[in-house]
Design a binder for these strands. Structure first.
Lengths: 229, 229
DNA sequence: TAATCAGTGATTGTATACGATCCAGCACAC
DNA sequence: GTGTGCTGGATCGTATACAATCACTGATTA
């Protein structure tokens, strides 16, 4: 049982982290139920800690906890899906700008390492992992910008983006990463703040345009789910 | 013992809400310790629920929880203080714009009611309450803009702003509200998106400029606090 | 056959109990 | 007098126990 692989974290944080990863990588689909006892068995801890972890994921918007019913992987509505990407379009270009203004050479190296891992995952057909890494890439830029507050918010937005993509992505397997990330690295590396901002803006618009965010009735896996409010 | 004054909330949420209010109104100062047992006595519940509440306030950035040491009202650093207002300057003008585009007449009435309560609180010398209401005013605008995701983030930013003001406000008692809020209402009521955006921008800049965010050595109440990282 | 209702098992919500950690005060040595 | 090590009490972290709630099954009836 791999508990406390990272020493400084509380056990609850470790559970939260692993659950988060599973959701980001789409190993847990929106709507999936997370029973407390099951998670207790898996991690070998009591419900106390599991509930703490679930609650923290609820805060990040990854889970919906219904009283006396349990925790479910969240299913963002169309409105929320649009809001998430509107919010990202609002803050990420500025973040990219700041990152470009403050980047050091080792930052660029890290970004490039990151992009390599992304491509490797794509080549091996691990779409879920690639998606998670793509999110991490955006977070890494916020880190370079040295904006902890915005980074924290962006973390939530990216978490939700992952759910949005699981629900509304048009072409299931083709996560055509284009070379948007590469362009971003270049601009940031050259301290070209204007270009970095612009690339980020169009990159997000590109993702957004590949989502199917039209109003529609169905898409539910079962009638029961459809009627659960 | 006033538990569960609002029926739909869980007890933990109610505790969190009341603690949040106390911090927003500066009845609890940054650095204050919140002992679990004490809160248990006050609300008449077990530590289980109190800990849930404390944890949720930690997520909002209002508390810092140190392992085996307890929960303390957060003391934002200078960097964090700046970041909070930078973030607000980034998103709130856009929120004001959207609010102006979508406002209905009843929204304006609500905002005006709000501003009246603010002035009333100021007149009665309840600076803490006035500050909290001022934050609520900004949140109300996000609500009118119908942007739940940004609203949620703004809620956190305003929470932290309250702490920042407690720590770094120059003129302790003079919360010179000027007529910035009034100007905002006018612009939003007239659907003047450009003005709303502009007023919000300068309003935030105005607040920011009244903070004392210069680098300094002291300001610590004790060496102990100074060294606690 | 379809609908309703009661009972039962499963699951979550809350309280309590126990063990671990930390801090303050005091004794003691230097 | 100052610094160091120990001990008791306070406080927190985690596990367990019990209560409340919900969902499902199956019997009953129209």
């Amino acid at each position: 049982m791999p508990i406390m692989t990272e020493s400084k974290m509380s056990a609850a944080d470790e559970i939260a982290k692993q659950l988060t990863e599973a959701i980001h990588e789409h190993r847990l689909q929106p709507g999936a139920k997370l029973r407390e006892d099951e998670i207790c068995d898996i991690f070998g801890v009591s419900r106390t800690l599991v509930r703490q972890a679930l609650r923290s994921l609820e805060f990040e918007g990854l889970l919906t906890i219904q009283k006396n019913r349990g925790a479910f992987v969240a299913k963002p509505s169309l409105k929320e899906a649009r809001e998430v990407f509107q919010a990202r379009s609002l803050i990420e270009p500025s973040i990219a700008r700041m990152a470009a203004e403050r980047s050091k050479s080792e930052d660029i190296q890290e970004l490039e390492k990151h992009i390599k891992r992304e491509h490797a995952a794509l080549d091996q057909g691990e779409a879920g992992l690639a998606l998670k890494l793509s999110g991490d890439f955006h977070l890494k830029i916020a880190e370079i910008a040295d904006q902890e507050t915005l980074e924290q918010f962006l973390r939530q937005l990216i978490s939700r983006s992952s759910l949005v993509i699981a629900l509304y992505w048009r072409r299931r397997n083709a996560l055509c990463e284009s070379n948007a990330h590469h362009d971003l690295i270049t601009a940031i590396g050259e301290r070209d703040a204007d270009s970095a901002e612009e690339f980020m803006k169009s990159h997000l618009l590109d993702i957004y345009s590949q989502l199917d965010l039209q109003e529609r009735d169905g898409g539910f896996t079962s009638l029961r789910d459809a009627l659960r409010q």
